[in-house]
Write a protein that binds this DNA or RNA. Structure first.
Lengths: 342, 342
DNA sequence: CCAGAGGCGTTCAACGTTGTAAACTCAGCG
DNA sequence: CGCTGAGTTTACAACGTTGAACGCCTCTGG
């Protein structure tokens, strides 16, 4: 059985509260007492019982991260960043997968398990704007992503519109005129797809290029196979284009694959840019141009906001932060010579 | 403030222990009392305080999963599988990243945080055979991977040797005679690299083909860039081969990329097989033949073993389980027509 | 030499739950 | 009409920790 404060106290010949004081670096502990206690701690290999500490103190030192699925590379890299950022603050991370299922997303917020952590970083994929009122839990929440705005929670997002606009401009600047889009969502306005499509349209508009729905391919999911299918669809209907904006990297990779199979050279015949800066985009053939949405900054900001909120739940109005982004030109738009090296 | 048993008891007009009995489905609670209590629970929106329950009961309902890094696709998919398997058993998963750093791997086992969970599923990458004695913690451990054998912990592994042998045989069966290896580790015997290389050698030996170190490329890490560099290395030194066994999928993908850049057709000129069955291998160009190491089975077995061990820590001797594997022939070895569809 | 101040350590009461054991209720029965 | 015993409910003591409040000791200043 593990040693407790009482055991240490007995060995050190002091009261168990004094041991607690030593451990918590309370002032007013004589050096000699401290030494005695520390000796006893070492001797017994004492380690504090964090569960008891949590019960007494009301916080656990853990946070929950709820996201759709780790096998989606974007979320895996996001989770990596969040766990690293949390570790820097001495927090440990409980990961819940929702599978992008509405009921599971709601359940994450409702489950008593959530109270085993001090706060929730939540990236919903099934809940939407109409559910803003349902975003609440017994612990502070920081929302990630673009599916819900104006809830009473803090929120960290990437600059979808501006970044997508800049990505599109990157293609326009290369002299491309007919830029197809892969991955739009039917009727969506907010949400990553809607916002990125808006950025695309803004870029066209600013250059006086008419928007052509004929070169916009709609999909349901954002997996590689959907990108491939969408590109098939474009080619099948004889769409004419000299560039593709994949609304995320996996879509873009699926599209590249189909383009290459169909005999198009990337970027010579068709330039392709994605969005997310997944690690793997550095290694595909060609390497994929993309937008780095500032994942580390997203994670660190989310952790910081959550810690603020844990410290003082009502201390400030809900905040909304947009992180800095960067277009990363690689081979799939600028060719081998000009590309950023891996 | 959240309601407690006492609050519910007051509203229901019973003692707080009766409320506890209702919640825990104790027998001998009169139906009318149960109804009264349940009504009060609903009324107050009572939810049990899991921290207090943990303190009292001694277990938390959480387990820790320690692995190198989620941004490595293999571990992301492993984590996905473990979290799903745990969820099926009502367990929640705390994810720790070690960054394949020896000190952090040791710290995971030593940290008092570990006691916030009931057990540890641990996939070490820096610790090795010589550290078998250091594998211990205050909670039961199930080891994953092939870096440490014969510790006193339960252990789940894939059949590296046999699977690698079968993968090699797959290439031999296609008539390939000179099979290069990408990703060997200098001097390694156990560990994924060592075991898979052994399987490769066994396959050659069984067919009377001499082993040629000249077509084995050594690397330090198992990232895509290392696979690319290794393939560059092979080509630079004029190695002759008609197939490549990438000791994992990312290495194989890096190798494919370099082969294609160098003008080789895959699989016509060079057939390539990887190992791990990452999701993305289904979508590369060409789709990558690989070995499915039974990730779901690994995860479910690990969870089951851990739960056994939590229930009865010394109830049985340490167990070692090897999961079933399967070679998945895709385009990179058998070409478009014969490949398993995505 | 004594009072007051402040450093140091202690006691006591929580935190919210569950296990143990005792106590109460109410038939059924002698 | 009280005893027995099964079925219910309750009181109490943990689990291991921290915070509040108190008291003791020593040191300083009058």
């Amino acid at each position: 059985m593990a040693a407790t404060l009482h055991d240490v106290a007995r060995v050190a010949g002091v009261s168990f509260k004094t041991v607690s004081n030593v451990i918590n670096n309370h002032p007013h502990v004589r050096e000699s007492t401290r030494a005695k206690v520390e000796q006893a701690i070492r001797e017994l290999g004492y380690r504090p019982n964090l569960t008891a500490r949590s019960l007494r103190s009301g916080h656990t030192g853990a946070i929950t991260l709820a996201l759709p699925q780790l096998s989606l590379p974007y979320f895996a890299e996001l989770a990596d960043a969040v766990i690293e950022a949390a570790a820097k603050c001495g927090l440990v991370v409980l990961v819940e997968q929702t599978g992008a299922d509405r009921d599971r997303e709601l359940e994450v917020m409702a489950s008593p398990r959530l109270k085993m952590s001090d706060g929730l970083i939540f990236s919903p994929l099934a809940l939407g704007q109409e559910d803003a009122d349902l975003i609440k839990a017994e612990v502070p929440i920081v929302l990630l992503g673009e599916r819900i705005f104006g809830s009473t929670s803090d929120h960290v997002t990437m600059q979808n519109v501006t970044a997508a606009r800049t990505a599109t401009e990157h293609l326009l600047d290369l002299g491309r005129k007919r830029i197809a889009v892969v991955g739009a969502h039917e009727g969506e306005v907010i949400g990553s797809a809607g916002l990125r499509l808006r950025g695309y349209r803004e870029a066209l508009e600013a250059r006086g290029i008419p928007y052509d729905d004929g070169i916009v391919a709609y999909v349901v999911d954002w997996h590689r196979s959907n990108g491939a299918a969408a590109m098939h669809d474009l080619l099948d209907r004889g769409a004419q284009f000299d560039a593709v904006f994949g609304l995320n990297d996996t879509l873009a990779q699926g599209a590249v694959r189909v383009l290459q199979e169909a005999g198009f050279r990337v970027p010579d015949d068709v330039a392709v840019i994605g969005f997310d800066d997944l690690d793997e985009t550095r290694y595909s053939l060609p390497t994929l141009s993309t937008v780095d949405p500032g994942r580390t900054e997203i994670a660190e900001t989310a952790i910081r906001m959550l810690m603020d909120r844990i410290k003082d739940p009502a201390g400030m109005p809900p905040r909304e932060v947009e992180t800095a982004f960067q277009v990363v030109p690689r081979e799939s738009t600028v060719g081998r010579a000009a590309a950023v090296p891996a």
